[in-house]
Amino acid sequence: MSDTATLIKMEGVKKVFLTDEVETHALEEIHLEIKKGQYISIAGPSGCGKSTLLSILGLLDSPSDGTYMLNGQPVGKLTISERTRIRNREIGFIFQAFNLIGDLTVYENVELPLTYRGTSSAERKQKVQNALERVGMAHRLRHYPSQLSGGQQQRVAVARALVGDPLILMADEPTGNLDSKNGEAVMELLRDLHRNGATVCMVTHDQRYANFAERTIHLFDGRIVEETKEAGVSV
């Protein structure tokens, strides 16, 4: 597959939540294509459906309707265990709240995706070391999350997302819990990863950080209302 091959393709994706007999249409007619190596951001106001879209893109949730192809495979209707397997091998997550497990060390947190993949201990050790070196946290292996600053925690979370060599990194408001300095640092880190070939899909409501991406998808009331490319060019 060439660098410009389509990694993600969504057509007519909808998401409807049913709660207490009330239908909430979170996403409507989403058509989206992401090529390998692209860095895209999903922007929009609070409640517009961007996190829902990221959840579906990350196979944390499934669409109510429409088709979703990941790396050429339809993944919209997979079973839970199939989704789990793909998520583990092909997607790396970075969350706003870092979501590191407080009772695991830095090493164990980063090791987690490899553990569920059945990677051998020696290989895990090497990969964890590499991932932590990439984010500059190799010197904090035995620390617990509570012993790290917010920025350091998010770096560890990035290392965890990277460690399994995923096809795409999904970042949900990765700077939302950081001060501007640490936020900038994390964004620089993501840009470096992209420059080295990583495909990145990021949700953000901050326009400054959205501009780090090659493309920005603007959502409003569950629909894509605009797409801009670098330097604010609308498509």
């Binding site: 789990t84 397997r85 998520r87 997550f93 979501n99 995706p113 569920y116 965890r160 399994g164």
Partner: peptide, 16 residues
């Protein structure tokens, strides 16, 4: 529940 959700997001199956 948050820890378990993180584990699930990282690829832990339900049985795991």
């Amino acid at each position: 529940h948050k820890e378990l959700a993180v584990r699930t997001a990282m690829g832990a199956s339900r049985s795991r």
